[in-house]
Design a protein around this nucleic acid. Sequence first.
DNA 1: GCCGTTTTCGGCCCGACTGTTTTCAGTCG
Length: 578
Amino acid sequence: MINRGVAEIFYNIADLLEVKGGNPFRIRAYRRAAQNIEGMPADLSKLSEDELMTVPGIGRDLARKIREFAEKGKIKAWEDLKKEVPEGLIEVISVPGLGPKTAKILYNDLRITDLKGLEKAAVAGELKGLPHIGAKTEKNILKGLELIKKGKERMPLGRALPIAEEIVDLLKRNAPVKEISIAGSVRRWKETVKDVDILVTSDYPEQVMDMFVGMKHVSDIIAKGHTKSSVRLSDGIQVDLRVVEEASFGAALQYFTGSREHNIKLREIAVRKGLKINEYGIFDEKSGKLLGGAKESDIYELLGMSFIEPELREDRGEIDAAFKRSLPRLVSLENIRGDLHVHSNWSDGGHSIKEVADEAKRRGYEYIALTDHSKGLSIANGLDEERILRQIREIDRINGGLKDFKILKGIEVDIRSDNTLDISDDVLKKLDIVVASIHSGFRQAREKITYRIVSAMRNPYVNIIAHPTGRLIGERDAYDINMEEIFRTAKQTRTAIEINAFPARLDLNDIYSREAKRLGIPVVISTDTHVSGHYDYMRYGVSVARRAWLEKRDVINTGGYRDLKKFMNIKRKKSNPL
DNA sequence: GCCGTTTTCGGCCCGACTGTTTTCAGTCG
């Protein structure tokens, strides 16, 4: 799989060209190609030049470069470019407020080629006096350098969304706002985000801005204007607030939700139709007449397409589908009828089985699968065969006292490093549902780790593979596995793949989940709940499914208890024809 | 560098804010 490598090279070429001051559209072309490659589950190295050219954003030239990389492991044009431009300059333009033009001046006039040199010159006060650089800019550059040292780049959605919701709540209560909405990548539920965007309408924009920049946790006011302000909170996250007129709210919401690529495409289409879109509305190009923009749907309607849900706005085919009126009806949180990955205090959960069940029922679920850890995870007090049998009896007893709710007897069985499961089939077959997952040996070779998962799926009692790639966002990469083979086996064996809703996991991710749907592989969305508050994470799991274009029928736990039992039995019957 | 029911060449989204500037360039989203 060379996709990741190629995408990184294209991003790098774009950065180098930017520092060099290249054609901005050429730079955009590289970034767009890189982004599209990242969103592709198919292995690039297996595609011919002509096949590559069918990928949006890849033409003859980039197709050749990809083939070159696939065959020789390097790209000459990139090697040449690297010789030409000092690589440290890429870091230099990563300093907030410092762009390619300034970097060029710094390089030409002061021979600054990296962050170290930049800091030295800034501290010495050598920057001010250069064209377009004064004392204030120099100070801002020093500030930006500090920020980089703290290493605040992208943060997981699980951290950004609660912050966004808190600020929305604060503004609603304390500022004269009318309409208010989260926008940006948070509204698209992107798994990591760079900043938080909030949009409001108000008759008193100045008051809203004052209130906003005066919030308790604001450590830095980056900008403050009539319609737009930006602050940095003490934990490093940047929050942007925009105030618009009510007549523009929809257009602004559309615009500030992005993604950038999605918006650029829409605007290009608008231009071709003699229309103009900006954050204030959608206009007739010639007369300048406002045609719409109070509602977000105005934009899509006037372009002649279906409304596109924010989660789909990544320029991954949604615009074509919206024109053809063939967008999916996305699965929603309300569709979820139970949680199939839940822990109790029998292993490392925080509550008793009864408490875990009561909480799920209170939230409107019809069932849960109790899937405590198995003995391989001794650190989590995993269950051995004997305790599993005891737990089965205990669940039967509790189920007897529950109305309109079922606890499925399950286990999160450990797939050991030697491919075996750590619980015998004799015990697994007594359970309603078996979830299998890897908790050790992450660094094994690709073939080996793939084979472990494939072996688990071939076990007739294993229904679901939990957190299939093992990644922890921002902490640990996915283990090196052959997803194609895993998907193939999942399909053959009728084993479901989990979208683990834990915000640090979101595993499968959106791209693989979309591929799973394309291949017809059953998907479940589960929270991996350890304490009752974790049930709240379901919305993150659903967001991954929505970003993957999944519909209700693609997700097993949107069905009722009977459907669920039916799904589990298909595999057992298939494996045991008698 | 990509792309085409206007185009195989000449386009390529659009505006806010800051800081350095007397009218605008640079950066950002």
